[in-house]
C-alpha cells in the first residue's frame, strides 16, 4: 500500500447532511472537522455550503461530502431537497438553548420523510463549553436519542471537543451499513460487480460510490 493518497483517491464517498436550528453551530462544527477552524463571525449559511474530508475507517478511505444547511425555519421546505441521497445526518441542537432541542423532533421527522430508513443519524448537542448556560441536560437528550434510535454525542466546536469523534462515528456506522449491504449482495448468486455503485437504500439515488482504485485487487 502506497503511503501517499491523492485527495480524490478514496474507497467510498458518503453524503452527510448537517441540520438543526439556526445558530446552533452547524457551520462551525463543519469547519472544525474539515479545516480545524472556528470563527464566531462566520456568515450565516444561505441555502447550503459544502465541505469534504477523507478519513480512514477500518482499512478503507472514506470521503465525506458534507452538506451544511441553513437552519432558519422559513427555508425548511427547501432544505429537505438537500436530503436526497444522504446516508448520514448530524442533527444539531444548542445545549444552552432548550428550544433548539425541542425542535429536534420536527427535524427528525422531516429527515426521515426524505431519506432512506438505513440513514445513520446522530443527535449532536453542541456548545457543551457553555457549561454555566446549560439548558438541556445530557440525560434528557440521551433518553431522547435512545427512544428515537439515533446516536448521540455532546460536542464543542469552539473547544474542538468530540467533533472529530462525532463525524468519525457517523462515517464508521455508515461504512458498516454499506459493508453489510455489500455482503448481502455477495450472497446474491448474481453478485454485485466490483466497483459498482452501492445503494444504501433509496431507489435510484447514488448514495455511496465504491471507487475502483488503481491498487484495488
Amino acid at each position: 500500500m502506497a503511503a501517499y493518497r491523492a485527495d480524490d483517491d478514496y474507497d467510498y464517498l458518503f453524503k452527510l447532511v448537517l441540520i438543526g436550528d439556526s445558530g446552533v453551530g452547524k457551520s462551525n462544527l463543519l469547519s472544525r472537522f474539515a479545516k480545524n477552524e472556528f470563527n464566531l463571525e462566520s456568515k450565516s449559511t444561505i441555502g447550503v455550503e459544502f465541505a469534504t474530508r477523507s478519513i480512514r475507517v477500518d482499512d478503507k478511505i472514506v470521503k465525506a461530502q458534507i452538506w451544511d444547511t441553513a437552519g432558519q425555519e422559513r427555508y425548511r421546505a427547501i432544505t429537505s431537497a438537500y436530503y436526497r441521497g444522504a446516508v448520514g445526518a448530524l442533527l444539531v441542537y444548542d445545549t444552552s438553548r432548550h428550544v433548539t432541542f425541542e425542535n429536534v423532533e420536527r427535524w427528525l421527522k422531516e429527515l426521515r420523510a426524505h431519506t432512506d430508513s438505513n440513514i445513520v443519524i446522530m443527535l449532536v448537542g453542541n456548545k457543551a463549553d457553555l457549561r454555566h448556560l446549560r439548558a438541556v441536560p445530557t440525560e434528557e437528550a440521551k433518553a431522547f436519542a435512545e427512544k428515537e434510535n439515533t446516536y448521540f454525542m455532546e460536542t464543542s466546536a469552539l473547544e474542538a471537543l468530540n467533533v472529530e469523534t462525532a463525524f468519525t462515528e457517523v462515517l464508521t456506522q455508515i461504512h458498516h451499513v454499506v459493508s453489510r449491504k455489500a455482503l448481502d449482495a455477495g450472497d446474491d448468486p448474481l453478485g454485485l460487480p466490483k466497483g459498482q455503485t452501492i445503494n444504501v437504500g433509496s431507489k435510484d439515488d447514488v448514495s455511496a460510490v465504491k471507487k475502483v482504485g488503481c491498487c484495488s485487487a
Binding site: 439556526s22 445558530g23 464566531l40 463571525e41 462566520s42 456568515k43 450565516s44 432558519q72
Partner: peptide, 10 residues
C-alpha cells in the same frame, strides 16, 4: 434573537 445572532456575523 435571530437578528442579534446574525448581525454579529454580517
Amino acid at each position: 434573537f435571530l437578528i442579534d445572532k446574525d448581525v454579529v456575523r454580517t
